[in-house]
């Protein structure tokens, strides 16, 4: 489904925080369109979780208005709100002896009777949600036997089973390895395709930039809103890590330390894999590369034969051979 023009969440003049006078977010004016995927980024303590928790109705804003489908959040009955918005926080417990199916079935809570009994429609929705996150083979497995990535997917299935138009996820990819991160990102994209409005917070710039329709960048108590590319063009990413001397590299789409390397090395950069990884190592150990120079500047060359790669360093009168970049790095940091 495409992103529609209609707003599902409208935030006007929103002030967040834990006590008046000390605000985490000040006078925010942002919107979410139907079917949009929004990534919330910002440093630790910038108010990402607070923002999501406020949208979920867990805590109240200090000032301002949040409207869900044009009705103020505060006017929703908690049970009705539970059918509109689901929230997967970071503080979820993992009870013992609870199976994946039973866990996901908690999401049906707003729809079941006083006893919590499941009807066929509920069971279908639960199995569908579990299939959506690819956990069908684990249906009867106990929650405490799963890996972090699997458990995270179960939590997302819980939100899906709740059958809400808006899904809020607080750091769904925290503590996950790269393949797991990619899989979760794929699940989020599929959720967006099925018409859900997804808002997730993350520290993972890569996936935010690649997948989100819109970023909310929390910086100095403001929410900067825009397409990832707009914020990139306006050099907004540099803003958030400025104090820690990081700059965002537009080419590699990565942050790197902004201090300029002070040590020099002679090295001819190439385009092949060996050259690229070698250049990475030199950048990491703080070397600036230049193509020529006198004998007082160490000179690094690469020799490649069928079976092995050899790095040669000529420094003054000494000549050394190395067979791994690790050894090269050690030598360079000790001898320059």
């Amino acid at each position: 489904m495409n992103v529609s023009n209609e707003h599902i969440i409208t935030i006007r003049d929103l002030w967040l925080g834990y006590q008046p006078g000390k605000y985490l977010v000040e006078a925010a004016d942002v919107v979410v369109r139907k079917g949009e995927m929004v990534a919330v980024i910002g440093r630790n303590g910038s108010g990402k979780s607070t923002l999501l928790r406020t949208l979920a109705g867990i805590q109240k804003p200090l000032k301002g208005s949040i409207q869900i489908e044009k009705i103020p959040l505060s006017e929703y009955h908690s049970r009705k709100l539970a059918t509109m918005i689901s929230h997967v926080g970071t503080g979820l417990k993992t009870p013992e002896n609870l199976t994946v199916f039973e866990t996901v079935s908690l999401g049906r809570h707003p729809y079941t009777n006083w006893w919590g009994g499941l009807r066929k429609a509920d069971r279908d929705k639960i199995t569908e949600s579990i299939r959506f996150v690819g956990m069908t083979p684990f249906l009867d497995k106990h929650l405490d036997t799963l890996s972090d990535g699997e458990r995270q997917r179960v939590m997302i299935a819980m939100a899906l089973a709740q059958d809400t138009k808006i899904i809020l996820l607080d750091e769904p990819t925290a503590f996950l390895d790269i393949p797991n991160k990619m899989e979760i990102a794929e699940v989020l994209c599929n959720m967006k395709k099925s018409g859900k409005s997804v808002i997730f917070s993350t520290h993972d710039f890569d996936s935010a930039i690649q997948h989100a329709d819109k970023l909310w960048l929390l910086h100095k108590n403001q929410i900067l809103q825009g397409a990832p590319e707009d914020l990139g063009l306006a050099a907004m990413f540099d803003l958030i890590f400025k104090e820690s001397e990081l700059t965002f590299d537009d080419v590699s789409l990565r942050f790197r330390r902004s201090e300029t390397p002070d040590k020099l090395i002679q090295y001819k950069e190439g385009e092949d894999r060996i050259s690229r990884w070698t250049a990475m190592m030199l950048a990491r150990t703080g070397f600036r590369v230049q193509s020529t120079g006198g004998t007082e500047i160490p000179k690094l060359t690469i020799e490649k034969s069928e079976e092995k790669i050899t790095w040669n360093i000529q420094h003054g009168t000494s000549k050394k051979k190395f067979y791994s970049l690790y050894e090269v790095a050690i030598y360079l940091t000790q001898n320059t």
């Binding site: 979920a56 109705g57 867990i58 009955h77 908690s78 049970r79 009705k80 709100l81 539970a82 059918t83 918005i85 689901s86 929230h87 926080g89 503080g91 979820l92 417990k93 009870p95 609870l98 866990t103 908690l106 999401g107 809570h109 707003p110 079941t112 006083w114 006893w115 919590g116 819980m158 709740q162």
Partner: peptide, 24 residues
């Protein structure tokens, strides 16, 4: 106690989560 079953189930994942499920 039987009437508390549904609410206690929801609270197994923490009270905050139970709140977002509409549990009082």
């Amino acid at each position: 106690a039987l009437f508390s079953v549904k609410g206690l189930n929801a609270m197994m994942m923490g009270e905050e989560y139970a709140g977002t499920l509409g549990v009082n």
